[in-house]
Design a protein around this nucleic acid. Structure first.
Length: 307
DNA sequence: AATCCGTGGAC
DNA sequence: TGTCCACGGAT
């Protein structure tokens, strides 16, 4: 899908005019005030899995403890996981730590600005790599997160997109300058106005300007939502209560306090969980390096030394 | 109960 | 290549 220059210019004008006011609230988020590549990498890694509000409550402490790539690289995995505690998806804390060590070893401690080099880092995918380029380096990059994916499918295309189409459309839309602002503005529109469940079309700058393909075709909320099934737009989740995810989180959190015994892990699992399921979770955590086995049927966080 | 979220590995 | 699933936990 190709956008002609006039539609592109119109979208820029309309969105930036709206964002001038909308950004005031969003700019209070702590990571909005930095362009330090390490701080951007940390915050974007946190934000890929967690709502902004929860990240806002933990990001400052994490940056205070690990203000630089080398401070993180020099720490133990256990220290990083403790600082990560409460954010969820502990594996990402591990990959962030591994990335820090790789950046020290392979890039002299400087976060690379090239897309390929960024994508090479563990835990860094198409979104995070482009986020670092756009937000830290002001380099040409179009991020496609779930919010932007929704706006692209609904307003720009008016139909579900494949992953490639979404990225191409986003690439096509990025202006030559104000790269950081453009990505933030599009993201803010998705999260504040073009929301997943209850989009406020009445207050949407694109709809009001006649630039929303969905709204041009259907009344607000009418028809089939074009973002359903569109690439990069997250769908529904598996039940959390009783899941392996829940138990993994409990185990890692408990291990943050110190070594834990197998019997403690079984307690954490609760009465209704099958023994085989508990064993599988434990096996997975060990294989992923999130947990380390110690003599005496004890388990601890990686990098800890006990005597 | 459903919602909010990108990466990576299996197919 | 594209699609599916696992992955945390507060609200």
């Amino acid at each position: 899908m190709v956008l002609d220059a006039s539609r592109r210019a119109r979208l820029h004008e309309v969105l930036f005019r709206w964002w001038k006011d909308a950004r005031l609230e969003r700019d209070r988020l702590p990571w909005r005030s930095t362009r330090d590549p390490w701080q951007v990498l940390v915050s974007e890694t946190m934000l890929t899995q967690t709502q902004a509000e929860r990240v806002a409550s933990r990001y400052p402490a994490f940056i205070q403890e690990f203000p630089t790539v080398s401070s993180c690289a020099g720490a133990t995995s256990a220290a990083v996981l403790r600082a990560w505690s409460g954010l969820g998806y502990n594996r990402r804390g591990m990959t962030l730590h591994q990335s820090a060590r790789r950046i020290v070893a392979e890039h002299n401690g400087h976060i690379p600005a090239e897309l390929e080099s960024l994508l090479d880092l563990p835990g860094v995918g198409p979104y995070t790599a482009r986020a670092v380029r756009a937000f830290a380096f002001e380099q040409p990059a179009a991020v496609v997160d779930t919010n932007i994916g929704r706006v692209l499918a609904r307003a720009v295309a008016g139909r579900p997109l494949t992953r490639r189409e979404a990225q191409e459309l986003a690439d096509n839309l990025v202006p030559d300058n104000a790269i950081r602002d453009w990505n933030l503005a599009l993201m803010d529109l998705g999260s504040l106005v073009c929301r997943s469940k209850s989009p406020t079309c009445g207050r949407c700058p694109l709809g009001q300007a006649g630039e929303c393909a969905w709204r041009q075709r259907d009344a607000p909320g009418g028809g089939v939502d074009p973002c359903r099934g569109s690439a990069a737009v997250s769908g529904s989740q598996a039940r959390f209560e009783g899941s392996a995810r829940q138990l993994r989180g409990r185990i890692v959190r408990a291990a943050c306090e110190g070594p834990i015994a197998r019997s403690r892990i079984i307690e954490l699992a609760g009465a209704s969980r099958a023994a085989a399921a508990i064993e599988q979770v434990l096996t997975d955590l060990l294989a992923e390096g999130l947990l380390l086995e110690q003599p005496g049927d004890l388990f601890c966080l990686p990098g800890e030394v006990f005597s």
